[in-house]
Amino acid sequence: MRFTLDSSHQDFASSIDALLSKADMPAVIRSWNTGDTGPGLKVWQRLAETGVNGLLVSEEHDGLGADAVDLAVAVEQLGRHAVPGPVAETVAVAPALLAQVSSDRLSALASGLLATVAAGPHVPFAVDADSADLVLLVDGATLSLGQAGAVQNSVDQSRRLFPLTAGETLGDVDFAPAFDLGALATAAQLQGLGQTLLDVTTDYAKQRKQFGKPIGQFQAIKHHLAEVAVGLEMSRPLLHGAALAVRDGSADSSRDVSAAKVACGDAAYRAARAALQVHGAIGYTQEHDLSLWLTKVRALITAWGTPAFHRGRVVDSLVEAS
């Protein structure tokens, strides 16, 4: 497969990166962690104005009518800046579900409404149901409005998890395509998180000195960071390939999404381990910005399907094809 992002993708990614770079995201995330979602919601509103929230919403309902490749490009940037809130749920999953049952809420999604989703067994909790404008529960083939129960804490303080009970029924849905979009968006977040961890750690290794020279000149540090860079470069084509498969309706799209989720998760986890090793224990303290990225990686690795589940889907697909 030959695939390269075109200039429109690159420009879109650059515009999102520029917007988020001006937002002091560590401060926004810390406010969200304490329950002050105001700064984060302002960021989300600015993202909506660039079209991020309405990427998968049809033009008929005030969205961009874009595809899974645009989704992966945009959400990777949200991951790079560790944007708090229900990212995959708002940008990818809710539009796919609502398009099957309802039209009146799609325009609201495109204009900045935040949505969250729970669907057992792989998505048992709804992220940030206390901050979302729309809370959805999928039970089998039934889509309902969800009512949040008691909050459950995550290793990532910006992710508050809520069990849901069913409220008003909205209709019947096919959840499988929406699940794949959620897993794809989570993989893109992990790819972006891993890239930031590599960039931050590389910069730190150039500045931190031991024995009179920057630690980045030591071969052991170089090897660690090189392995991280290789892992991220190898996972990105799988992410883009999965996005193409979803866009084109490939029969292997679920397998490709699972492969991307595993690869991006592994690459991000490797980046997190290297970042912590190079920075030392200070990197994991709440006072250091690095911790905001480290904990989000740890949380998202199991979000929208665990690595074991996704590896199982890849193996099952290959066995069936053999």
Rank of each mutant, 00 (worst) to 15 (best):
P95F: 14
Q207H: 10
A92L: 10
A303W: 11
R208Q: 07
R236T: 04
A260D: 08
M25I: 06
E168D: 03
D156P: 02
D36A: 04
L145S: 01
V75Y: 10
G192P: 07
L181K: 11
K22E: 11
G241N: 06
H81N: 06
A68R: 08
V246W: 07
K206V: 11
V52C: 07
V230S: 01
V173I: 15
S254I: 12
T201V: 07
I221T: 12
A251D: 15
L190E: 10
S253Y: 15
H279R: 06
F309E: 14
Q189G: 14
A119P: 08
Q77P: 05
T37Y: 02
P163Q: 08
L170P: 00
Q277I: 03
L55M: 05
D11M: 08
L181M: 13
N153T: 13
D62G: 15
G85N: 03
V314F: 08
H279E: 01
R273P: 00
L181F: 14
L64F: 14
S31Y: 06
T306K: 09
A271N: 02
D104C: 09
E168I: 03
T302W: 05
T165D: 00
R46C: 09
Q189W: 09
K206S: 14
M25E: 02
S103W: 05
A274T: 07
L184Y: 10
D104G: 09
T165N: 00
M25F: 04
Y269N: 09
T201D: 04
P26E: 01
D24W: 01
T50L: 15
D316L: 15
T4P: 00
S253D: 15
S102W: 03
A82C: 13
V87E: 06
G65D: 09
A243I: 07
A119F: 04
Q100G: 11
V69L: 08
G38C: 01
K261T: 12
K42W: 00
T295S: 09
W44Y: 03
L193N: 11
P163H: 09
L244M: 12
P163I: 11
V262P: 07
G112A: 08
G182K: 10
I29W: 07
H240S: 06
A303R: 12
R270M: 07
S235Y: 07
D156G: 05
